[in-house]
Design a protein around this nucleic acid. Structure first.
Lengths: 121, 121
DNA sequence: ACAACGTACAACCATTTGGTTGTACGTTAC
DNA sequence: GTAACGTACAACCAAATGGTTGTACGTTGT
């Protein structure tokens, strides 16, 4: 079953919002490089444990990291597939830009033999 | 002269924040595909002109679009180079993940001639 | 048993965000 | 000239954000 547009957009909202904070980007870098417990992550930043725990929760809700429980620790690990999905979305944006170029090519090609103006989009 | 880390991070904050709103992503799609005046963009959305104008300003401050003045109109155009820069940042995140894999490879390689068990599980 | 640790979450606070309306000002059309 | 258009920006408002402290609860070590 395919995702609706608004579901895709909601995921994108969560992705970009999660990435729009430098502390969260830094956490993501660390957990992509390897598993870290939440408290180990917290020690790296000049803010309370609770603040870091909330950042991790934002990344988790966005699907950019997953946690597994080991004893009293929660080990966080970055999800590279999700990161790739964000990249795909940007590539799709680039494709729109390439579309503009091809349309300019068409205009150029059309002009050479019709000399009429084309209607606007 | 190279950019400082915090300048890069500030740019990334602006990029991802700008992309974290679906109206802004939609505007960016349109202006990547071709130039649009702010009022033409505004007609596409169920919100005030001022609201759309502010979204355009956010995208502009993030460097994702540029405006040029033509008479009384402001024509907005998407900056594909900036979009690519965002993509590069994600690729760098992926590289960290690949680093994790190579480290696992190293461990594995070490195991083949030391025959010791790895510390975890 | 119990103290320390790691996690989760609620309540609170200041700031930012995304929307609104209103105003001002240059440009275009009549 | 003047009315309509396109833009910009200020002031305002409700909701969300990013931080805090405090509390609760399971796990680990002594």
């Amino acid at each position: 079953m395919t995702e609706t547009d608004s579901e895709q957009e909601a995921r994108a909202d969560a992705w970009f919002h999660a990435l729009a904070d430098r502390t969260r980007r830094d956490i993501l870098r660390r957990v992509l490089a390897g598993e870290h417990s939440v408290s180990a992550l917290a020690q790296s930043y000049d803010m309370s444990f609770a603040a870091v725990q909330k950042h991790v929760a934002v990344l988790e809700r966005a699907g950019l990291l997953t946690k597994r429980r080991q004893g009293r620790e929660a080990l966080a690990s970055g999800d590279v597939e999700a990161v790739r999905s964000v990249g795909v979305m940007l590539t799709e944006l680039e494709a729109l830009w390439r579309g503009r170029i091809s349309r300019m090519d068409e205009l150029l090609a059309a002009d050479t033999h019709t000399s009429t103006t084309t209607e606007k989009d």
